[in-house]
Nucleic acid binder design. Structure first.
Length: 473
RNA sequence: GGUCCGGUGGCCGAGUGGUCAGGCAAGGGUCUGCAAAACCCUCUACAGCGGUUCGAUUCCGCUCCGGACCUCCA
């Protein structure tokens, strides 16, 4: 098997992936804080790490993918105060919305989806360990992590503690021993969610929930930790500090992977700029939009910044139109060894730090290859790129396409549903029959009129040697 | 200001020290009653300035431009 290379943010370079336990790969990805609908930026890590999970499952016998739901957070509390809606209702609804949206993007559910509120006991246990190990202290109802107690602090994000203090731009709370110390536990008043703890009724700080949930479900040490690039500091830096100090001798995550940020029309997405888009907004474009957005995300390498535009979404839709057109024409076959070989050729770039754009390019070559043998044309160019000496039998390249595309999570839909779903086939078939009759009597004016009328309804006709077929625009 | 990541042809987007990415758009062609689809051809770029080298888009330095982060919050 070819090596899998992954870019490790901690090492700042690509590293050969060597799992702690080759029979069981473990991955943790930071999930959403459930206080509002998922926006486009939230979708990127979900799709990226969904592809990684699919790839890992192909390479290793067992994979446990954990992605949490953070359902205790001051943003949620603030939202509840504004709207008057109970916190439990907000988090339950937002979680359900998140599930629906991510499913529409073709993201498979993680193996475990722990909730922060279900792991308060683990958080308290972690904090107690940190205090016992001399890495945390209680002060004024809070418990704080002592940054100077951890010599490695700043290693992940590439910062020195001196820089961090120099960069501190907020007033330092008086109960902190050091300006860099961060909160593990904080007191809650009567109107704020809280749990009994050795330090009084309170709630967790921002970072401890991920340390607790990864520990509970993956152990003191696991293979891959993922999330958005903006989480490197302070969130992931603090997670490392908490987990390594709670379990000395364990390295926590072996590989850190961070996806780049998503921009909209060249600018950071923000409500004040008016370019804020939710996944739900995109899905409302049509039944095709979820898969098209997924493809759009994968057309840019996961570590690069991605500029979302509506034109880009349309182009992704057009690409899927072409893919599904090929799949609808190709005969169904089992594929065989040649298909497996071609699928490997497409998937190979994914082994190089998830090079999805290159894999997608090769997928297009498979499409062209299939088209040349099922529709007609010269396969010379794609034969050269794929390294084949002669064209495969009809259906073979399509079978390879399906196999490779399944790792990317695209092209798995029913081609007929993609092309014709939601339309009144009976009416359209009748119109096609009428047009065929007109053509047979060489009444081309009438034939073209029927075709144009269908076009205004978003229905495109395609005359082929096997008859006339139709699809939605 | 600090740390980090990028700047590839009209647009998107791979990659490499020295004969090809690919897609979209555009133009041309095969096919077609005409289209569409499919296939073929054309379109030769690597921000700027230096340096290393026989040779740099690819390595090094600087400049310019864009983006992320710089603590209790998103």
């Amino acid at each position: 098997m070819t090596d899998l290379l992954l870019h490790d943010s901690a090492a700042r370079t690509k590293r050969r992936f060597v799992p702690i336990d080759p029979t069981h790969v473990r991955m943790y990805v930071c999930g959403p804080t459930v206080y509002d609908l998922a926006h486009l930026g939230n979708a990127r890590p979900v799709v990226v790490f969904d592809v990684l999970a699919r790839l890992l499952r192909r390479l290793y016998p067992k994979v446990t993918y954990v992605r949490n739901i953070t359902d205790v957070d001051d943003k949620i509390n603030a939202r509840s105060r504004e709207s008057g809606e109970p916190i439990a209702i907000i988090t339950a609804r937002t979680t359900a919305d998140f599930h629906r949206d991510m499913a529409a993007l073709g993201a498979l559910p993680p193996d475990v989806e722990p909730r922060a509120t279900g792991h308060i006991a683990e958080m308290i246990a972690l904090i107690e360990r940190l205090i016992a190990n001399g890495h945390a202290y209680a002060a004024d109802g809070h418990v704080l992590f002592s940054v100077p107690s951890f010599a490695e602090y700043g290693r992940l994000s590439g910062r020195s503690p001196d820089e961090l203090v120099a960069g501190a731009r907020v007033d330092v709370a008086p109960y902190k021993r050091d300006a860099g110390d961060f909160v593990l536990w904080k007191p809650s008043d009567a109107d704020t969610p809280g749990w009994d703890s050795p330090w009084g009724r309170g709630r967790p700080g921002w970072h401890i929930e991920c340390s607790a949930m990864s520990w509970k479900h993956l152990g003191e040490e696991f293979d891959i930790h993922g999330g958005g690039h903006d989480l490197i500091f302070p969130h992931h830096e603090n997670e490392v500090a908490q987990s390594v100090c709670a379990f000395p001798g364990h390295a926590f995550a072996q590989y850190w992977m961070h996806n780049g940020m998503l921009l909209v029309d060249g600018e950071k997405m923000s409500k004040s700029l008016g370019n804020f888009r939710t996944v739900r907004d995109i899905l409302s474009e049509g039944a095709w939009a979820g898969e098209a957005f997924r493809l759009l995300l994968l057309r840019t390498h996961y570590r690069a910044a991605l500029d979302f535009t509506i034109d880009g979404l349309r182009e992704a839709k057009a690409e899927l139109d072409d893919h599904y057109a090929m799949l609808s024409r190709a005969p169904a076959t089992q594929g065989g060894p040649l298909a497996g070989q071609l699928a490997e050729w497409v998937i190979a770039p994914l082994l190089d730090d998830l090079n999805t754009p290159l894999a997608l390019g090769r997928l297009r070559d498979l499409r062209t290859l299939e088209n040349t043998v099922t529709v007609g044309g010269s396969p010379a160019v794609v034969l050269e790129r794929t390294g084949l000496s002669e064209p495969p039998a009809p259906g073979v390249a399509a079978a390879a396409f399906r196999e490779a595309a399944s790792i990317l999570g695209i092209g798995a839909g029913d081609p007929a549903a993609w092309r014709q779903g939601g339309e009144d086939a009976t009416m359209i078939e009748a119109a096609i029959a009428a047009r065929l009759a007109a053509r047979a009597s060489r009444n081309f004016g009438e034939a073209d009129r029927i075709r144009d009328e269908l076009k205004t309804q978003g229905i495109l006709l395609e005359d082929g040697p096997g008859g006339t077929t139709w699809r939605r625009a």
